[in-house]
Deep mutational scan, measured.
Amino acid sequence: QIFVKTLTGKTITLEVEPSDTIENVKAKIQDKEGIPPDQQRLIFAGKQLEDGRTLSDYNIQKESTLHLVL
């Protein structure tokens, strides 16, 4: 699982696999929060994550925290 922290300070927990794409993660966030993926920007280690890449591409491991910017 990974954590996604929103600007409001809320933390969302997501069940993911390293092979999941960023697009996939955004879809999971939409399921939980109702935020359309095209409004979501995910930041990890100061980098904006691209939809077509996977979590493992960015070396995002379990218990990692991503930041969600709208």
Rank of each mutant, 00 (worst) to 15 (best):
I2R: 01
V4C: 04
V4K: 00
K5Y: 06
K5T: 15
K5M: 12
K5N: 06
T6H: 06
L7I: 12
L7V: 15
L7H: 15
T8D: 14
T8K: 10
T8L: 10
G9M: 04
G9I: 02
K10C: 14
K10W: 09
K10H: 13
T11F: 10
T11C: 15
I12P: 00
I12T: 03
I12R: 02
T13F: 08
T13Q: 08
L14A: 02
L14F: 04
E15I: 13
V16L: 07
V16S: 04
E17L: 11
P18V: 11
P18T: 09
S19G: 11
S19I: 07
D20C: 08
D20K: 02
D20R: 02
D20V: 04
T21A: 05
T21R: 07
T21H: 04
I22G: 02
I22D: 00
I22S: 02
E23I: 14
E23A: 14
E23F: 14
N24K: 11
N24G: 09
N24I: 14
N24R: 13
V25P: 00
V25H: 00
V25N: 00
K26R: 05
K26G: 00
K26W: 03
K26D: 00
K26L: 04
A27K: 15
A27S: 12
A27W: 12
K28E: 03
K28A: 07
K28Y: 06
I29H: 00
I29W: 00
Q30P: 02
E33W: 13
E33C: 15
G34I: 02
I35G: 02
P36N: 07
P36C: 10
P37Q: 12
D38W: 13
D38P: 08
Q39K: 11
Q39R: 12
Q39F: 09
Q40W: 06
Q40V: 09
R41S: 10
R41P: 01
R41D: 07
L42S: 00
L42M: 03
L42F: 03
L42A: 00
I43E: 10
I43Y: 15
F44C: 05
F44M: 05
A45S: 08
A45E: 14
A45N: 15
A45M: 15
G46M: 04
G46R: 04
K47R: 10
Q48R: 08
Q48I: 14
Q48T: 14
Q48Y: 13
L49C: 05
L49G: 00
E50N: 06
E50Y: 06
E50H: 09
D51L: 06
D51W: 03
D51I: 06
G52M: 09
G52E: 10
G52W: 11
R53C: 12
R53Q: 09
R53E: 04
T54P: 05
T54F: 06
L55W: 03
L55I: 09
S56G: 11
S56N: 09
S56P: 03
S56I: 10
D57W: 09
Y58G: 01
N59T: 05
N59S: 08
N59M: 07
K62F: 15
E63K: 07
E63V: 03
E63R: 06
E63T: 07
S64R: 04
S64K: 04
S64T: 07
T65C: 09
L66N: 01
L66C: 01
L68M: 08
L68F: 03
V69M: 13
